[in-house]
Design a protein around this nucleic acid. Structure first.
Lengths: 350, 350
DNA sequence: TTGTAGGCGTTATCAC
DNA sequence: GTGATAACGCCTACAA
């Protein structure tokens, strides 16, 4: 403890540079640079001397100076709506895992789902000379945002989004996931299946809607537009739409709640209405969360690995930046989903 | 859309510098620099010309170059165990809010609660020349970590931690919060009150334990060491300890579950044992979460504002960095907690 | 009021 | 193999 205190009280370390290391080692700065960059062809004895000097002085290269020379920041930006959304914090963790081992810095930024702020953040990363970006933008067709992306000239991958610019896109297979969920419900005899989801104008939403429509069609069921609630991911939306649905003359017998934040709202509505799962309504949610496992009964879920999504985005982005896969890289990378069967759905006899 | 595509397909923007802006504006680079740094005494007409050139070229100063000159990175690091913990994602959001408006970059890093990794991350931020750090370390007394902090020479604030180095510390008033919760339980007639929490060797744990002990003492109750489970924040720990507690000859009538991740474990144990809240056990949790509000009955919680904690940490850190408050700044900043009364506690007649 | 030039800490291209 | 030295893009005395 005393030792620590002493260290703590030392004055701010005078900025030490290669020059001083070189002097101490009795070599030139060029040699020091060669040593720390593992340039082959330096005499082992010299390497040892230099290492010694580096350790003794506790020096490490000034990264800003490196950046200015190599014109690369080794920093990549990740923009999404809100880090508090567990989906994004998981992706962040995954991305961080691979980026840190590759010597990149990950900087996350929350846009609060505001396109104007997205533009600001993209410009910000441009000024900061980010080497790459991972983007989960709000609307795939917002021109201001698309222009900002293009104008930035920064390599990027779209996370759970797809834009008309040939950017590489990465995401879960929501079409298959939703389709599988609907198939399961159809198998249980359900014919009135409702969907609550958001992200209008994103590939995620399109995939989910199309999956429901096609599954219904292939079962010969006419879709009821009143059962499609596709305007928001907010908990309040889940609440209000569930109330609306359950108060219909002919309410749905099953509901797909697709979006992390929706589930609490849906459950609250059901509780307020005194409706029981699965007796009054069969329920399937997306983004398997703590809540889905904690409530009684546990909720059947369409699960996918957000951590892996983050990892893959980072890997794909690095490949792109370091140009290791050239022009033959795929434009779309998908990970599978998995239907976790629990007790929130019941068979109905009709 | 077509327009966007055209922009997108433009070749990588040739790195443009002050020199070119200066040429276009017909001034010297010095003048351009003065303009962007708002140095007074530049003729308005010239300012306008320079601005025009900047806009036309879409130039912005290379931050790495600025950093090397000003020897400041305007970057601050935030280390905690895991961004997926909602506590930390909320703090991150709060910190980001204030840092971004002050022109700082926030870089978060997860240590997975591993002190060795904490040391690596601290060294990393040192190499990256971070202007400051926000730290939530695992153990307040780990010498390697403390030495790394001291050795880094970087201004920092301890988040929910307190170390023997005079660093400024910021956190919620867990002592009062826990004390209030216990008082409430005592008022309901409970005498056997158990505590599950982790963070051994952190101020948070100490405050909670002390609060329970003092409250019991002031009620003339002899504390039962078997009711203190203070070894981990993990859900599994919540599960196993709840089982152990409920299987005691004389189980507790009330339980404090203090830690975000504990609650799911506690609830699962109760479910497995077929125990009901509040009939078989009165429960109070910390870190009011979705889960506490979703389950039936809803769980009474000790709430505090993690977002505000993040904001305050950032503000305090900036003050420290920019030396606006000199040596008279407080060493400890606390925010209050609030007891949210719900239906998870019952009065007992004994 | 504005231009010039030196320096910030590296890397990389030359010679030696 | 290793040592000078010229960039990299910007800020800031100092000079004009």
């Amino acid at each position: 403890m005393a030792r620590v205190k002493k260290v703590a009280s030392q004055s701010s370390p005078a900025r030490i540079t290669v020059q001083e290391v070189a002097d101490l080692a009795g070599v030139s700065i060029g040699t020091v640079s060669r040593v720390i960059n593992n340039v082959p062809g330096v005499k082992p004895a010299v390497i040892k001397k230099v290492q010694g000097a580096i350790d003794e002085l506790g020096w490490s290269p000034n990264i800003a100076a490196q950046n200015i020379r190599t014109s690369s920041s080794r920093m990549i930006g990740f923009i999404f709506s809100d880090i508090r959304n567990s989906l994004y914090s998981s992706m962040t963790k995954g991305a961080e895992e691979v980026l840190s081992t590759r010597g990149y810095l990950l900087v996350t930024a929350s846009s609060d789902g505001n396109p104007e702020r997205e533009v600001v953040l993209i410009d910000f990363f441009k000024r900061r000379r980010a080497d790459g970006m991972i983007l989960t933008i709000q609307e795939e067709n917002n021109n201001a945002v698309l222009a900002a992306i293009a104008n930035s000239g920064i390599p990027h991958v779209m996370m759970e989004r797809e834009i008309p610019m040939g950017s590489i896109s990465i995401g879960a297979d929501h079409f298959r996931g939703t389709r599988q969920a609907v198939q399961y419900l159809l198998g249980l005899g359900h014919r009135r299946i409702a969907l609550i989801t958001g992200g209008r104008g994103t590939r995620v939403a399109r995939d989910r809607i199309r999956a429901l429509e096609e599954a219904l069609a292939s079962a010969g069921i006419e879709p009821d537009p009143n059962l499609f609630c596709i305007d928001s991911f907010a908990a309040e939306y889940g609440l209000s739409q569930t109330q609306r649905l359950m108060n219909m003359k002919e309410p749905p017998t099953a509901l797909l709640s697709m979006g992390v934040r929706l589930l609490p709202g849906v459950l609250e509505a059901l509780q307020l209405l005194g409706k029981k799962i699965p007796d009054d309504l069969s329920l399937i949610c997306s983004n398997d969360t703590d809540i889905a496992r904690i409530v009684t009964p546990q909720i059947t879920a369409v699960r996918y690995d957000a951590l892996a999504l983050g990892r893959m985005a980072a890997e794909s982005l690095i490949d792109q930046i370091e140009k290791r896969t050239h022009e033959d890289r795929p434009v779309r990378i998908e990970i599978p989903t998995e239907l976790i069967l629990r007790n929130s759905c019941r068979a109905i006899s009709s």
